[in-house]
Design a protein around this nucleic acid. Sequence first.
RNA 1: GGUUCCGUAGCUCAGUUGGAUUAGAGCAACGCCCUUCUAAGGCGUGGGUCUUGGGUUCGAGCCCCAACGGAAUCACCA
Length: 605
Amino acid sequence: MKIEQQLSAAIIAAIKELYDFDAPAEQVQLSKTKKEFEGHLTLVVFPFLRVSKKKPEDTAQEIGQYLQEHTDVIASFNVIKGFLNLVIAPAAWIALLNDIHAAEKYGFTTPTDRSPLVMIEYSSPNTNKPLHLGHVRNNLLGWAVAQIAEANGNRVVKTNIVNDRGIHICKSMLAWQKYGNSETPESSGKKGDHLIGDYYVAFDKHYRAEVKELAAKFMAEGMDEEAATEKAKAEAPLMKEAREMLVKWEHNDREVRALWRKMNEWVYEGFDETYKALGVGFDKIYYESDTYLEGREKVIEGLQKGLFYKREDGSVWADLTGEGLDEKLLLRSDGTSVYMTQDIGTAKLRFQDFPINKMVYVVGNEQNYHFQVLSILLDKLGFEWGKDLVHFSYGMVELPNGKMKSREGTVVDADELVAEMVRQARQTSDEAGKFADMSEEEKQEVARIVGMGALKYFLLKVDARKNMLFNPEESIDFNGNTGPFVQYTYARIRSILRKAEDAGIVIPEALEANVTLSTKEEEIIQHVAEFAQVVKAAGVDYSPSAIANYCYELVKEYNQFYHEFSILREEDEAKKVFRLVLSQNVAKVIRLGMGLLGIEMPERM
RNA sequence: GGUUCCGUAGCUCAGUUGGAUUAGAGCAACGCCCUUCUAAGGCGUGGGUCUUGGGUUCGAGCCCCAACGGAAUCACCA
């Protein structure tokens, strides 16, 4: 049993005994003792003054006295004002470390067949352009959230909804037909998604040229600039063609569909490469081309039930003014779907495929309103998980000069970023002259792990809700509060463990309670034990950043210890073994923690 | 204008359900430490009115109200 649980129970018993009061568990505030004071855990006694009817100091004194006499966890205690500082007995620390040591996946809860089924949607790309830094944040967060949910004993289905239809895809298709010269990923040597993205840009370029020319013509005919531009945008031949293509697509035109399939395939191959590099994956992928019609059916069903209403022009709306929101369009007057309709259709298909208890959407905060509405609509339509669906809403990645804009060419491309991170990791490693004995493949593998570790940690350590800044000039650090710092410490611990093994030192399954612990060592045990709480808390509020920051702090603390004491040169055999076990468990916990973030740990670096 | 989110060191960010005279890291700057288990490291120095003003209480960076500043959103776009 954990020390804190044991203590909480003992404190409740003490208060019952001393003051005849049943203290609720949440009133027992045990926190880590501040560094300036002696002790490990501190009880705040202010909440109990009412029942003790004594001064804070005396109350604390009494409770401390009782705990020392009635439990074997407390070695001693001291009182400062209303704070009762408790010193945990050395044997209890060893027992705690043994518990952690015995649990291979310390802090994790294994899902069973009866665990809640949670579906997590993330990534959700458009198929007309390659992934950029914003998508990377989404993918990494989505993966981490799924890992965290699983570590907390949920059955998890990771899903992706691909936006593979609409006018934007037609733009790429059209540009490819017009200017493409039958270019393919093979013939051009480009990744499929980049190839298609280039044609999307090409469309925009030609389209704008047309608009400019047309607008000039209209202005010459006497229109003012604004009206001329508006008219030019609507009448530009390219845009007209794109719309015609969309109509053909909707009518299942064989040629258009074939082209669409071919180009989407290219994009998916490109995406798969990027996903693989990012280390993310999905259990089930949905396509909007399959779900948008389902949504329309569901909306019509709702219309018949009187949940929605139809306007004179034939468009269908949901009236959410009662919920404090606006009226929301669900079907256009021509009967076609909008974004919201598709999400309803996707929800329907998902529920058919999986009897999910909970749905988590990892989508940017720009869509907060959308999900507020979706939640209400799904609830009205009878989805049990609709009302408390989770929109895991994360902030934008900003560049020094503001938002990323594809039109202005200020996007940070995902593939380029990954390549650059790995390249820099490799360079740093080579410059340090490490591991000259490694093969080229090994070096490259370490560079990949470290480069990706730096990128992932950088994006995940920040509170997901907040907008964050990425400065391409300064790039991502490898020193300080970074992924590589944590990886580096891990690699060093692994190195020590290898050397210990070579020296024939056997690490026991459980330690004897015959070592004297330094304060630092006790603190590290305490810190390692905290991992279980961090994982649990992260499972409640989906916070990868809490795990990242925990790993950093543990590693920082361990590094100070590492620098101060020698492990392999320690003469006291029992102490040496203790430190090896402690180090091994520090390594274990950070590997588990970083694993939740999708960050791999190198054996050497 | 309505709604939601954010505001902590020069910069990027932590800060657990409100707790302790001194609010923490990293980067950047300066100074030490590699014959010592991996220096992607450790130690030290400087740097703050936690945007502002009220309120709640034994106690507020954290909770409530207001103001100021910033972001997102409010489409027959996705």
